[in-house]
């Protein structure tokens, strides 16, 4: 629980720092739906953090699977880990 809180507070710091640096950078929208410039800015702002966390998660998952040679990824599609296929 304590660990969870520490992680949460660190993610706050990272997020705010990255957000401050790159908040003004956005993509022009080409879709029929207005994505909202604030929503674009936020995504770009937290992209680095999200990408890093995701890579770490995938690395950890692969490592765990190799170590324990477990194959628990045979669930139906809705629960399937599609992120694995990206690698």
């Amino acid at each position: 629980m304590k660990m969870k809180r520490i992680l949460a507070s660190r993610s706050v710091e990272y997020t705010i720092a990255i957000l401050t640096v790159s908040l003004l950078a956005t993509h022009p929208a080409h879709a029929y739906l207005d994505p909202g410039s604030g929503s674009y800015a936020l995504q770009v702002g937290i992209a680095g953090l999200l990408g890093a966390l995701f890579s770490l998660k995938m690395f950890w998952r692969r490592l765990r699977e190799r170590l324990f040679a477990s194959n628990r990824e045979s669930a139906p599609a809705a629960a399937r880990n599609l992120g694995e296929r990206a690698g």
Partner: peptide, 9 residues
């Protein structure tokens, strides 16, 4: 990768 991270988050 960041986009996949967004979806994962």
């Amino acid at each position: 990768n960041a986009l996949l991270g967004l979806i994962d988050s």
